[in-house]
């Protein structure tokens, strides 16, 4: 079947779109970040141009190692903490040059940052860019720690995770704090589109949210849980199962906030116990040692509380 005869946005048509992140980059096998980038960029309509931004991190050092770039589109990496501000400059230049008749093409602006560059060191830059209303998408590929520097905790790291700066030891159960709810914070910026997703089934949830984010006028924020085999310590083939369990246990709910209205994208028929997510990952291994049952209970209680809060937000938006 000819590509152009497929209905736009059908599964086959999307999968047949040319890759905008070329093969040959140096990211790990089983890297969630790569899957996030490939699928978000597939949501760009064929023919539309884009400028891709990127905070410093695994993705950047592995996909733009001089003299090679894996990006088919124009791309800019600036530093760790300023992906938001950098792309806001590019987007503003676009308007300036368009106004002067120097550009006629349609461009979209998408920037990627890990949770370190997004939740933490780049938080101010992100907040500023979203608040100013630039027509751009900020995508966080959230792998829950500073993976590029060797698995240090971030404010996105889940509680009790074993990281190199929250190591499990005689006096330590791993990270003492819960993770920051960045999607909610972005929703509080009152931007037109915020969504949280991960890799499920045929990636339609990720695709649909990416397309909405890209083609909604104004700032949009996508939070994508993107597992890291090194940091989470799982076998690469287990990644999709981990993502599924994250959603089925309600550890990582799928939702959208459109013009301030919260909407749940998926409600598990039967909410699974958190252990189903935790047991697949080496970073939570210590939670299953005898005597640590109370840690899982505390973590479960926190997941339950946040899930109820989300349901409440969605109900109140109806």
């Amino acid at each position: 079947m000819n590509q152009s005869t497929l209905p736009l946005g059908s599964f086959k048509e999307i999968q047949n779109r040319p890759e905008r992140l070329a093969a040959g980059h140096r990211l790990c096998a089983g890297c969630g970040g790569t899957i996030a980038v490939r699928n978000v960029l597939k949501a760009l309509h064929p023919g539309d141009k884009a400028v891709i931004g990127n905070a410093t991190g695994c993705l950047e050092v592995s996909s733009f190692t001089y003299p090679y770039t894996a990006y088919e589109d124009s791309y800019i990496h600036n530093a760790f903490e300023n992906a938001g501000a950098t792309l806001s400059g590019v987007e503003t230049a676009y308007h300036a040059l368009k106004k002067k008749g120097k550009i006629t093409e349609q461009y979209k602006f998408i920037t990627f940052g890990g949770d370190g560059g997004t939740y933490d060191i780049g938080f101010q830059s992100l907040s500023g860019a979203m608040e100013r209303g630039h027509d751009m998408v900020y995508v966080c590929y959230d792998n829950g720690a500073y993976m590029n520097t060797g698995i240090q905790r971030s404010s996105a790291t889940p509680m009790y995770a074993d990281t190199t700066t929250t190591p499990v030891g005689k006096q330590s159960d791993g990270k003492p704090q819960g993770r920051k709810d960045l999607a909610a914070i972005m929703a509080a910026h009152n931007i037109p589109y915020v969504a949280q997703t991960t890799f499920l089934g045929n990636m339609m949830d990720l695709y649909q949210k990416s397309e909405k984010a890209i083609y909604t006028k104004g700032p949009a924020f996508l939070n994508i849980m993107a597992p890291c085999p090194r940091g989470w310590r799982y076998d690469a083939p287990d990644m999709i199962k981990i993502c599924k369990m994250a959603v089925e246990t309600c550890y990582w709910p799928l939702f959208e906030v459109i013009d301030g209205k919260w909407r749940l994208s998926y409600q598990p028929k039967e909410k699974l116990p958190l252990e189903e997510f935790l047991k697949l990952q080496g970073r939570f291994k210590h939670l299953f040692l005898p005597g640590n049952e109370h840690l899982i209970e505390a973590f479960q209680a926190e997941v339950d509380r946040r899930w109820e809060e989300l349901l409440c937000r969605c109900e109140n938006s109806d």
Binding site: V51, G53, I76, N78, A79, E81, N82, G84, A85, T86, L87, S88, G89, V90, E91, T92, A93, Y94, A96, L97, Q124, S125, S127, G128, A129, E131, R132
Partner: peptide
């Protein structure tokens, strides 16, 4: 912008564009 760090970051983005 919300800081001078972002001023120079955005300037880099704009000039590169």
């Amino acid at each position: 912008v919300e800081s001078e760090h972002s001023a120079m970051s955005a300037a880099i983005g704009a000039e590169a564009a």
